[in-house]
Write a protein that binds this DNA or RNA. Structure first.
Lengths: 146, 146
DNA sequence: TCTAAAGTATATAAAATCAATAGACATAAT
DNA sequence: ATTATGTCTATTGATTTTATATACTTTAGA
């Protein structure tokens, strides 16, 4: 698994919407500013997430985005897979991979399978409800940083 | 972690050298043919592995490559890291990452840490001795495939 | 000594992916 | 109407990945 900037933005955007889930729609600009992403690039990411059914939008003057489902029904894993592709470290983990010279005797494959399964196990049971709660908790703690 | 073709070639080349560990040096051409890699590209990969201290070479007419250490002393993890870079799914897992807007409150970071640790735990304890033995075992089994 | 077979080194090109920007358009509140 | 928003498509620039090309060095053996 490799998280690109695009994937990173997508995850942070969904998290932002999760944090503001009870407050109606949120604009691209507001999200972009908070997650420190280029707004035009974020635009495309949000559009993609919308087409994937993860978020909904409202157009017009007081438009913006909101989650299609409550935060507890969205996992980190689904967003990553959707935006950055499969979690497998190499394509041969899926059957039907034509480039592998000898699929049956490839001794690396079981290792990649294990990595894939361990990764999935982690990201597929982290929900945005959990993450949003952590954000809110840390926001309430004064930092006293310089 | 993402395995590129280059990384894939490197792993298969090291495995090939592990399988033939007791037979002296092996030529680039022989490796290239067996692992199905472009020989000129493999050349660069082998050179890199040599500079990394993983393999040694002998020049001249009956030249070739061999492992610097016995197969049981080389892990999958070290080769991957050396050729394809860090195992972390995203750079922010390492401290000192400048792009993360708020490192202290980034709630994704612990997740990436877990993925990184799970991945490391798997690939760092697979040695090429184990893999080579598996290859040899499967080579002795008739396949009866068409 | 000559030649052939092998590794060494650097440069370049081709292709793919990633990241970002630009500009025209559609929608809806006021 | 105006303004603030989302929608859509195209394009550009940068980087990485993959591969090829070319010249050079080394060594065994005839």
């Amino acid at each position: 698994m490799k998280i690109t900037h695009k994937g990173d933005y997508a995850l942070k955007a969904v998290l932002d919407l999760a944090v503001h889930y009870d407050e109606g729609v949120v604009t691209i600009q507001a999200i972009a500013k908070r997650i420190d992403a280029p707004s035009k690039f974020l635009e495309q990411v949000l559009l993609e997430l919308k087409r994937g059914g993860f978020i909904e939008s409202r157009r017009g003057k007081i438009g913006g985005y909101m989650l299609s489902k409550p935060p507890q029904d969205i996992t980190l894993g689904e967003i990553i897979r959707f935006v950055d592709g499969p979690l497998e470290p190499i394509a041969c983990v899926n059957k039907g991979y034509a480039d592998c010279h000898d699929l049956h005797t490839c001794v690396f494959r079981p290792v990649w399978q294990k990595v894939f399964q361990a990764t999935s196990a982690i990201v597929d049971h982290v929900t945005f409800e959990t993450l949003a709660r952590e954000v809110k908790a840390s926001e309430n703690i004064p930092t006293y940083s310089i």
